[in-house]
């Protein structure tokens, strides 16, 4: 039996604009998403900003009523059997909100231990355990106000684990955490998964998804475009080569020209602090580097590398194909 089940989930939001003449319109955030997650599986939901990941998670955690479709956790309906669902899930979101700032970590955890119905006689031990799991032991008497972003994130995870839930939802748990900190959090998540927890994770970091997830689903504009193991998704693009070019001043125009090169499947341009990163995916076996450079116009070019496709390239492929149509 699958532990988490989304069956044709839909959700729209009504928003209004204007002060005097208020106009309401509907945003279809999630448009018929279906997937199942088996016991002990770690499933990653990937997708661009606004794709509907958080909305999907909130429906499955009983925080939002689906407009249509059904969601089930351990067989319980998330719209109607809320008490049963809530007792068996942990919910952790990224960012530094959601804590009592003026209280210390211990009080935050004690409060939630009561709310999450942790047996009084095991609370002390359990709190010590979760502090240990997230590596906050020894800092629990400091006020949360003084916590760094990464410490807050760990405290969130500790809170989500208090009642030892069999099912865990993690919405961008490593956002804003430094590289060493996120690596530690990934180790924690992997350990939870190894301990048999069923986990739904969202992230924007493809290497994170690749390292952690048994399966991933790629969602864009409210629709699930592809799902499978990271290896399966990478197989989609196995016959490709990726040329990565560090550059400055590449124009949108130039990117369009690159897209028209025969054999090129996807082109992305990321703006970074120290310049731009241009990625060109093409059928492998073609030697396109010179053709690409010729079409870049006045752009200044730095390091050039040709490499095998990664999960990120598979993701880019799925999202560009899916949102083009």
């Amino acid at each position: 039996m699958s532990v988490i089940e989304a069956d044709g989930l839909r959700r729209s939001y009504r928003t209004s604009t204007g002060v005097l003449r208020r106009r309401t319109h509907e945003i279809e955030a999630v448009r018929g998403v279906s997937f199942t997650i088996d016991k002990g599986e770690l499933f990653g939901l990937l997708g661009p900003n606004g794709a509907g990941k958080t909305t999907t998670i909130k429906m499955l955690t009983t925080l939002l009523l689906p407009t249509a479709g059904t969601g089930r956790v351990l067989g319980y309906d998330v719209a109607t059997e809320t008490a049963r669902v809530r007792a068996s899930i942990g919910y952790v979101f990224g960012g530094d909100r959601g804590l009592y700032e003026r209280l210390n970590a211990l009080d935050n955890l004690r409060y939630f231990a009561d709310l999450y119905a942790v047996e009084p006689r095991i609370q002390r031990k359990r709190i010590a355990e979760v502090l240990d799991i997230v590596g906050l032991s020894g800092r629990e008497r400091e006020r949360v106000e003084g916590y760094s972003r990464g410490m807050r994130q760990r405290l969130h995870i500790a809170r989500g684990l208090l009642h030892d839930p069999p099912v865990i939802f993690l919405d961008e748990p490593t956002i804003g955490v430094d590289p060493v900190g996120s690596r530690e959090l990934r180790t924690t998540i992997a350990a939870l998964s190894a301990a048999g927890k069923t986990i739904l994770l969202t992230t924007h970091y493809m290497f994170e998804a690749d390292a952690l997830c048994d399966r991933v689903g790629i969602i864009a504009k409210g629709q699930l475009l592809a799902q499978g193991s990271p290896a399966e998704l990478k197989a989609r693009v196995a016959d490709r080569t990726v040329v990565e070019i560090e550059a400055h001043a590449v124009t949108a125009d130039a990117v369009e020209k690159l897209r028209r090169i025969p054999g090129v499947v996807a082109v992305t341009l990321d703006e970074r602090d120290d310049g731009q990163l241009l990625r060109v995916q093409s059928a492998s076996g073609l030697e396109l580097t010179q053709t690409i450079l010729a079409r870049l116009g006045d752009a200044r070019v730095g390091r050039i590398a040709t490499r095998e496709p990664t999960l990120e390239d598979a993701y880019v492929d799925v999202v560009t194909q899916g949102t083009r149509s």
Binding site: T61, T62, L63, R86, A87, Y91, F112, L115, Y116
Partner: peptide, 8 residues
């Protein structure tokens, strides 16, 4: 949200 999602 965290208070609502608690089973109490």
């Amino acid at each position: 949200e965290l208070l609502i999602v608690a089973p109490v």
